[in-house]
Every structure is written in C-alpha cells, then in structure tokens.
Design a protein around this nucleic acid. Sequence first.
DNA 1: CCTGAAACCTGTCTGC
DNA 2: TGCAGACAGGTTTCAG
Length: 280
Amino acid sequence: MPESPEVETIARNLREGTAGCFAIPGLTISGYKSYWQKTLAEPTTELLDQLLPGQVVKEVKRRGKYLVLTLSRHTVLIHLRMSGDLLTCVDDFDPGLKHIRFELEFLEGGRLLFNDPRKFGRIWVVEDTQTILGKLGPEPLDESFTSEEFFNLLRNKKRIIKSLLLDQSSIAGLGNIYTDESLHLAGIHPLTISKNLKYQTSKRLLESIRQVLNDGIERNGSSIDWVYRGGEYQNNFRVYGRTGQACNVCGTIIERIVVGQRGTHLCPKCQVLYKSREKD
DNA sequence: CCTGAAACCTGTCTGC
DNA sequence: TGCAGACAGGTTTCAG
C-alpha cells in the first residue's frame, strides 16, 4: 500500500486521531505483542521487553516511506512495505483483521495494531535513526530541495528515469503509483535516460512530482483492492492501472510495459521516448 | 556504476 | 469447481 501520501495520511491519523481512531502522542507504552518474528527487525524481543515499557510517545512523523514515532528515549521506525497498515483500537475490541503481526499496548488503554498480510513490513526500535534514515535521499516536498539540485541528481547519473525515481537513496517517498503518475504529468517516457533530460524538463518533472504527491495527500492516499482504506486518489489516476483505457489528455490507449521488474503505465503519445540528449 | 533476477509473503483475479 | 499462473503499493542481495 504505502508510498509517501499513504504514510503521511497514516501519520496524520495517529497524530491527530480520526473517527474511530485515537491519537497516540502523550500516551505511555506499557508493552507489546509480536505475532510474526521477522516483523521486529531490531532489537531482539528480550531487549525490547526492557527498553519499551514506560516510554511516552512524543511525536509522530514521516520520512520517506517510514513512519517515525519519537519516544522519550528511543524511536520506533515502521516501514509498511507492500501491504502493511496501522490503526489504533480500544481494548477488547476485535477489528476483524486477520493479519496482525505486532502491536503496542498503552498504559492508558488501547493498542496500536500493525496489520500486514504479506509480512514484508518491518519495525525497528533504535536510539539513532540515522543508521536507517540517513540512507534516504531528499524529500521532494521539502521546499529547500531545489530544481537545480534535482537536475544535478539526474545529470550525474546514467539511469532509466523510472528506476531512479523509485530508488529511495536518490529521492525519498515515491513508489510505483506516484512515479508513473508523475512521469505522465510531466510528459516523460519511463525509459528515458536521466542524464538526457535538459534542465527545463527536469524542473517540470519535479513540479509534477510535487503536484501528484500533494494531490495524493489531499485525497488521503490511494486505496486499491483490499489493501488500505479511506483513500480517494485512485479515482484520479492518469495512467496507473488504466491499461487499455483512453488517456484523459489525448485519448490514446494507455500501455503497460515492465521497467525494473515493475509494471509501468504510460501514454505512448504524451510520453515519447527520446534516445539522445534533449536540445537546450 | 547500472541492470536484471530472485527472494521475502499472502491474497486476488483470470483463463482453461 | 479446481487449478495454474500472473500480478500486487517495496526492498535487499547477488550475478553479470
């Protein structure tokens, strides 16, 4: 499920609460339960027993696709990978979820549930977040990240643009949906080599990424199939999951190709592949 | 440096 | 209905 708009939505829900979901800042952790061993990546359960109880949730944030729960002394990092989801739940209430892998219990009552059918999600409890978050590239929505820096990022690498955008160490937070959507909005073919883009095109790409992510956040992310709930951005998809349908810009039939093992959606007319450096 | 393939998992959908 | 195969919002590791 989770790319940055979905993670951002979940972070906001945990921070502020929603209907049927309480806010967690200010609550004290009393314990935890682990139902799938691999979900807890760090530390061991024995250490966690010692360090977790008594810590207070100070802050809930997002960095890239990670949820960041700042505690009194440690930090909980949660990566939802493909199918993870988080929700709060009052005691003795069965939310009817079949794939709870981990939960935090609060002294004041209630639990934070980590549901994850495919078991790819991971949780770390660490003192120093930099070991993990330090590997991430810049946040595209960070205003201090300039189009000049983005251009240099693309120009200094000889990579397929879609693969580069999915690479979290280059730029953080984009996944398969929002990458395809951004490339269509910018009119760039997914197989374009990054260093072939001229400044004006790369600037347009960054603006497209920002627009797509902001629209996604505004609509609470995307809900597809049985995973994730409450998002509305799937109703605004330009190309993702629209193979065989008409492009809403030019009417051409949307195609599906594979790039870096990922299904990739594009309009062959709006996104023409140029195989050499763009002219300035 | 860069790409592709495989692995980690379960659930859903399509076609025979 | 059954069953095989493809596919799914992500990341890591390894071979070439």
